[in-house]
């Protein structure tokens, strides 16, 4: 494990902590996309099936369990918590799951490194993660008054992806025969999706203004 990978994982962990904290402290999930959270839950479930079949390291196992548990906690709060669920922007969070899930599934069936259930589901999770942030970005665009913490959450998630790219470059340069084209391409697509958000996030931070995304 290199420093970029560790920093990426920690940023990912921090992003989820920020989101848990925001929802729990303000008792509000305003501006948070349930669709994105549910897509992430699907991503984690499909990718971490190897929790049952393949032990990699204690670090790996613990992180996987944290990502699964925290995402399901957020979904539970947004759907069922009697105070929090009322604050969910149901009418604004209208992105359709099938537009993301179906193309990713078809792509995973066609483009994978081995045609087995585990491998296809794993590949599906890689493709789906790349686009799972889209409902959240659309919702942010529709939210007039973006909460600082919600903005920070998306910024941290994007930073995690950028750090993963540095991790791949490092691994490519230091590990012989290290190649994973499907993961790289998906990861680059995923990071590109954040560029527009980054631009407005940094601009608002520099000008000391509240973050807002133009429609």
């Amino acid at each position: 494990m290199n420093i970029f990978r560790l920093a990426g994982d920690m940023t990912h962990l921090l992003s989820i902590l920020v989101l848990l904290l925001k929802i729990n402290a303000t008792r509000s999930c305003r501006g948070v996309s349930l669709k994105t959270q549910e897509l992430y839950a699907l991503v984690f479930v499909c990718r971490y099936l190897d929790l049952f079949t393949n032990f990699i390291s204690m670090y790996n196992t613990i992180m996987k369990i944290i990502f699964l548990a925290s995402t399901f906690t957020i979904i539970y709060w947004m759907r069922f918590h009697k105070v929090i669920r009322v604050t969910y922007d149901r009418e604004q969070d209208t992105f359709r799951y099938q537009f993301l899930v179906l193309p990713c599934l078809v792509l995973a069936l066609l483009l994978n490194s081995e045609f087995t259930v585990m491998e296809v589901l794993w590949t599906f999770s890689i493709y789906l993660e790349a686009v799972a942030i889209l409902p959240q970005l659309v919702l942010l665009q529709r939210t007039n008054n973006i909460d600082n913490l919600t903005g920070n959450y998306v910024f941290l998630l994007g930073s995690y992806r950028a750090l993963y790219i540095l991790n791949w470059i490092y691994r490519f340069l230091t590990e012989p025969n290290y190649r994973q084209y499907l993961v790289w391409i998906s990861g680059i697509v995923q990071t590109i999706i954040y560029i527009d958000f980054f631009y407005y996030y940094i601009k608002s931070w520099k000008n000391n203004e509240k973050l807002s995304l133009p429609a």
């Binding site: 990978r5 994982d9 992180m63 490194s113 491998e119 794993w122 590990e175 025969n177 994973q180």
Partner: peptide, 10 residues
Amino acid sequence: ESVAEEKDEL
């Protein structure tokens, strides 16, 4: 080979 190796990433 690399299939197993890439699975160590989260």
